[in-house]
């Protein structure tokens, strides 16, 4: 039984990483305002959202299984409070931190109508921190990290996110450029009246 949990925990962890990679890449694509091959603009946003919700589900299973897995030795507190785990406090701590960030990203996004665009966008920058944290957590605490298939998956994920971020900071990233300020000129033809009033 606990072997099954362990496999489930590992498997959902890997799937979560892949989904989060997709989520980050699609988030960047959403920000670009450009369609992707086979995905119109509105669908890029919609898939970004769906994939992040799905990632949330897989993360929930991932941590849920670990909770019941005697090998991991985790309790509810150590799942959400970073660096509080008894075993592997650093690597499991990264996992807890990543989980908190991603939960915050998903919850604020689902409630963004109430939160308002400014605060929501501010929190959304945490996406760029959450992904490397999740990756490091997987590399440090995963028992498959050095297997060939896991190295391949990790490599593809890293390449995808690096490519997305490289695109994000490139010159012609956004389809519609940010609004540039219009030069200010002095008002012509104006000779206004004196302050003393009627004449």
């Amino acid at each position: 039984m606990s072997d099954a949990l362990w496999y489930l925990g590992r498997g959902t962890g890997v799937v979560s990483l892949v989904l989060l990679t997709l989520v980050v890449a699609l988030g960047v694509a959403t920000r670009s305002g450009r369609p992707l091959p086979g995905l119109p603009r509105f669908a890029v946003t919609a898939v970004h959202r769906s994939a992040s919700l799905l990632a949330g589900v897989f993360l929930a299973i991932h941590v849920g299984t670990l909770l019941f897995d005697p090998y991991a030795g985790l309790n509810l507190v150590s799942l959400v409070v970073p660096f509080s785990a008894g075993a592997h406090p650093f690597w499991y701590g990264l996992g807890a931190l990543g989980l908190d960030l991603i939960l915050a990203l998903v919850v604020t996004s689902v409630l963004r109508d109430r939160i308002g665009p400014r605060v929501w966008r501010g929190i959304h920058w945490a996406a760029y921190a959450s992904w490397p944290i999740a990756l490091a957590h997987g590399l440090g605490s995963g028992s498959d990290a050095s297997t060939g298939w896991m190295l391949t998956i990790t490599g593809v994920c890293v390449a995808t996110v690096l490519a997305a971020v490289g695109w994000r900071v490139s010159e012609r990233f956004a389809e519609v450029p940010d609004l540039a300020p219009v030069p200010v000129t002095a008002p012509p033809l104006v000779g206004t009246g004196p302050p003393e009033g009627p004449r």
Binding site: G33, P35, R41, F42, P117, E175, V176, L179
Partner: peptide, 24 residues
């Protein structure tokens, strides 16, 4: 003041919304 011409609405509601030369 919020719209930055990301274009999703143009695709979903072509009957109501076009796109101008600046993308809005």
């Amino acid at each position: 003041t919020r719209c930055r011409g990301r274009g999703g609405c143009v695709e979903l509601l072509p009957e109501l919304i076009g796109r101008d030369e600046w993308g809005y």
